[in-house]
Design a protein around this nucleic acid. Structure first.
Ligand SMILES: [Mn+2]
Ligand SMILES: [Mn+2]
Ligand SMILES: [Mn+2]
Ligand SMILES: [Mn+2]
Lengths: 231, 231
DNA sequence: GAAACGCCTTAGTCTATACTAATAGTGAGA
DNA sequence: TCTCACTATTAGTATAGACTAAGGCGTTTC
């Protein structure tokens, strides 16, 4: 009788699961997730992130390059996609079957995603007819862990007349980020492309649903990664 | 700017909520909940219970009489009934709307009860038509915290011909408890009263659904608290 | 190439909750 | 009334995860 052996594969905790999701989202555009960005997304202090990063890499869930950032291992990616599947199915189930609106649904899913069993998620998925998109149009990963890669287009390249959802802002520059925020250009915003001036000129857009116009120069437009909203 | 003031009313943790539920169930027959019974119910060690008991009484949720046991304060009772409402509505919703059977539903509810919002519970209750009983026939407390007191009758007093659910075993004696367990007489078991001998004689019952007969002497029958199953 | 600034990490602390080992109280029987 | 067996509590330790304060690394700027 040995003095208690540590379980080599303990279930992931709520914190761990939320960190993995944050890292997935922050590194989805191919790079590293920075400590301070993870901290901002999860509303914890940077040292808390450093501490968790150490644990996660010891668990084999992430790869850490000191002072650079982190990336998910394939094991970490699998775990992150599992949580994203749960989150998105929950959001859809709550809106479709329990009358939630887009607003309230995210916070509820953020807590429930850690408490539901795989069985419950699959029962909800069945009740929904094996859906592919959540209420916000985001793709739902399959139970096997495959996800439709969103085809993002920079605003500078988007065709005039298309309707877009702003999905990612491709800079970490504080001044630019602050400017985008002032303009109401934050991830999740819907817009239509009104016109574009020739010779690398600015793009004019209209925000949805307000209709407010914005004129965005080419340099900044290249930083705004958008997803076309299906018909 | 003071050095961080402790929130005087932090949300209850999952552990605290489960302790309160356990204490509620163990002391429902009017007495104190014993440390070792709480420990057994929650599958933790007795010292863990002593530790939690100290915290809960500092929070004003229980009253602790050292070496005797604990009882809920009215605040603790309110919190316990809130969890029981959640648990039972969840169990009913999962069976009615998502095809769960009696078996799987309890564990799922045991986790979800801590993660759902009041709003979600009330939406489920609405979808179920403000139900009064869970899938096991247990009464669902109202949102205001009222619960139908189960009218328990001891097997020694139950009328011949009635169908009963065994709800509580009114002893802590190990030998008697062991004997009851051998006989399959544990809380939750369904039975019908077949006959009773006169002059304080034994009661004969039939287990449901197996039909197996049991003959229970008066002394023991007085320890078996049952609830009549409605028509 | 040095200085400065900003981001990242380390060091040290705190809380909640569990555990084991040791001690103390209680009530049933001798 | 005393003893013993059981139960409860205390003491001490561990882990996850958060925090603040302090120090280290790298990039930008001159
Ligand atoms: Mn969401
Ligand atoms: Mn979450
Ligand atoms: Mn249950
Ligand atoms: Mn529970």
């Amino acid at each position: 009788m040995q003095p208690t052996v540590r379980d080599p594969n303990p279930p992931l905790t709520r914190s761990v699961e939320d960190y993995l999701k944050a890292i997935y989202h922050l590194s989805s555009q191919g790079g590293f997730a920075a400590t301070s960005d993870i901290a901002a997304m999860l509303e914890v202090s940077p040292p808390s992130v450093s501490g968790m990063v150490k644990r996660l890499s010891e668990m084999g869930l992430i790869e850490h390059v000191p002072y650079r950032g982190v990336q998910l291992t394939s094991q970490g990616r699998r775990a992150a996609l599992r949580m994203i599947r749960r989150h998105r199915i929950l959001e859809l189930y709550l809106t479709q079957h329990l009358g939630y609106d887009w607003g309230g649904v995210h916070d509820e899913a953020e807590r429930l995603e850690h408490a539901v069993s795989d069985e419950l998620i699959e029962r909800m998925a069945s009740a929904l007819g094996q859906p592919q998109y959540d209420p916000h149009g985001d793709p739902i990963p399959t139970a096997a862990g495959d996800i439709e890669e969103a085809e993002l287009v920079s605003l500078a390249d988007a065709h005039v007349g298309t309707k877009l959802e702003l999905r990612q802002v491709g800079t970490q520059d504080t001044a630019r980020l602050r400017y985008f925020a002032e303009q109401g250009l934050t991830p999740g915003v819907l817009l239509t492309v009104s016109e574009r001036q020739p010779f690398n000129g600015p793009t004019t857009i209209a925000l949805v649903p307000s209709g407010d116009p914005r004129v965005v120069g080419r340099e900044l437009a290249q930083l705004l990664w958008c997803q076309e909203i299906g018909s």
